[in-house]
Amino acid sequence: MTVWPVQHAKARFSELLDACQREGPQVVSRRGTEAAVLVPIEQWHRLQAAARPSLKQLLLASDARSEELVLARGGGRRRPVVEL
């Protein structure tokens, strides 16, 4: 990955974008510290899909968290009964 100082990234954004599409992720640094990464959109979509499991994966997971989904009962307030 190539590291671009923020001043160069701003001044040569088109080059940064072309390098990202041609070579892959590009790092932008601010004051010598890595601050951000520009990634191609295809890679971004793959990362997003991998980070979000499907419903099927959640249901088939061995560490199912069903006990956390059940709400405690009796904690709500009841409305007063109005006599007709």
Rank of each mutant, 00 (worst) to 15 (best):
S14H: 06
V27C: 12
E42T: 11
E42C: 09
T2Y: 03
I41Q: 09
H8E: 11
R30W: 10
V3T: 11
L38Q: 02
L60D: 14
E68D: 15
M1Y: 01
L71Q: 15
R22I: 01
F13Q: 05
E83V: 08
P40V: 04
R31M: 06
H45F: 04
V6E: 01
A49Q: 11
P53K: 00
R79L: 07
P80L: 15
M1N: 04
Q7M: 09
V27D: 02
A19F: 01
R52F: 06
E67M: 12
V28Q: 01
E67D: 15
W4K: 03
K10L: 13
E23R: 10
D18E: 03
E83G: 01
D63E: 14
A51P: 06
H45W: 04
V3K: 08
A35Q: 08
A51V: 10
E15P: 02
L55I: 04
G24A: 12
S62P: 14
L47S: 11
R73P: 11
S29I: 04
V39Q: 06
R78N: 12
R46S: 00
L58S: 08
L84K: 09
A11T: 07
L38Y: 09
V28P: 03
W44H: 10
A9C: 05
R65A: 15
Q21D: 02
Q26G: 02
P5L: 01
T33S: 15
S29Y: 11
V6P: 11
A49R: 14
A50N: 09
C20Y: 07
V39G: 00
V3R: 14
P5E: 00
A51M: 13
Q57L: 10
Q21E: 05
C20D: 07
V70H: 03
V28F: 00
M1H: 10
E67T: 15
E83T: 08
L17I: 07
Q26E: 11
H45D: 03
S29A: 14
E34G: 10
H8N: 08
C20A: 13
A61F: 05
S54C: 00
E15L: 03
Q43D: 06
Q7A: 13
A50V: 05
C20K: 00
E15Q: 10
R79E: 12
V70N: 10
L84I: 00
G75E: 09
G76A: 13
G32A: 08
L16K: 07
E42Y: 05
P53M: 03
P40R: 08
R77F: 08
R46V: 10
A50Y: 04
V82G: 02
V37S: 01
R78P: 05
V37L: 06
A64N: 15
H8W: 05
Q21T: 06
A11V: 03
L59D: 03
R22E: 04
E68I: 08
P40K: 03
L17Y: 00
R31D: 14
H45R: 13
E34M: 04
F13P: 00
E23A: 02
E23P: 05
A50R: 15
P80S: 11
G76Q: 12
T33C: 12
V39R: 00
L84C: 07
S62D: 15
D18K: 07
E67S: 12
A72N: 10
S29E: 14
S14Y: 05
L38R: 02
E15G: 06
G75M: 07
